[in-house]
């Protein structure tokens, strides 16, 4: 399926929100995915489907990539120091986070870890068109629907503040 950038980012962000992630990381995730070269879409979607941790203060440990990667990029930007993340093998997406933020370089280590470090290149403007497998599109929409509210007769009539027929 051939989709536009806006469509892709909207679907990714909604899917992330539907999967239970906060809005801010969800938007960063969408931007990073759009900035990823040759994305592994199945891996990206599977990342969303992991249970989101409870966020109630205190440092996150073993944070999933959708939370740890933007924070790693933040730390490099704030301190100028390298940050290495082990665990999940999401190097492609990690590169997307680095490219979307700009002035951050990303290197994949031999053990599968990724290292973020200060870099030269500014933020990358993503492509405006993407080929997405149909099943990925379906999976994203399936997750996105979880962020929608079930409709009923009352909300159908009052929620939008408009009537149901306009034959005048």
């Amino acid at each position: 399926m051939n989709v536009s950038l806006n469509e892709l980012m909207g679907a990714l962000a909604k899917a992330a929100i539907g999967a239970g992630w906060p809005h801010g990381p969800a938007r960063d995730f969408a931007e990073a995915a759009a900035c990823t070269d040759a994305p592994d879409w199945a891996a990206i979607v599977s990342m969303l489907e992991r249970p989101a941790p409870q966020i109630s203060g205190g440092l996150l440990t073993n944070a999933p990539a959708i939370l740890s990667m933007p924070s790693a990029v933040d730390m490099v930007q704030a301190t100028g120091q390298r940050v290495t993340l082990g665990g999940d093998d999401f190097a492609g997406l990690a590169a997307g986070y680095a490219r979307a933020r700009g002035h951050i370089a990303m290197r994949k280590e031999a053990d599968g870890a990724v290292t973020f470090a200060p870099g030269e290149e500014g933020p990358v403007r993503p492509a405006t068109r993407f080929e997405l497998p149909d099943d990925i599109w379906t999976a994203l929409n399936r997750l996105a629907v979880r962020s929608y509210v079930a409709s009923n007769e009352q909300s159908r009539i009052s929620g939008a503040g408009a009537g149901l027929l306009d034959n005048d």
Binding site: G24, G58, T79
Partner: peptide, 22 residues
């Protein structure tokens, strides 16, 4: 709650739910 001396980076590590508003 976090204290004034933290950086935004440190803060968002603990509070990713605040990223959008920050």
């Amino acid at each position: 709650d976090a204290g004034p001396d933290q950086s935004v980076a440190e803060f968002l590590l603990a509070r990713p739910d605040q990223r959008l508003m920050v």
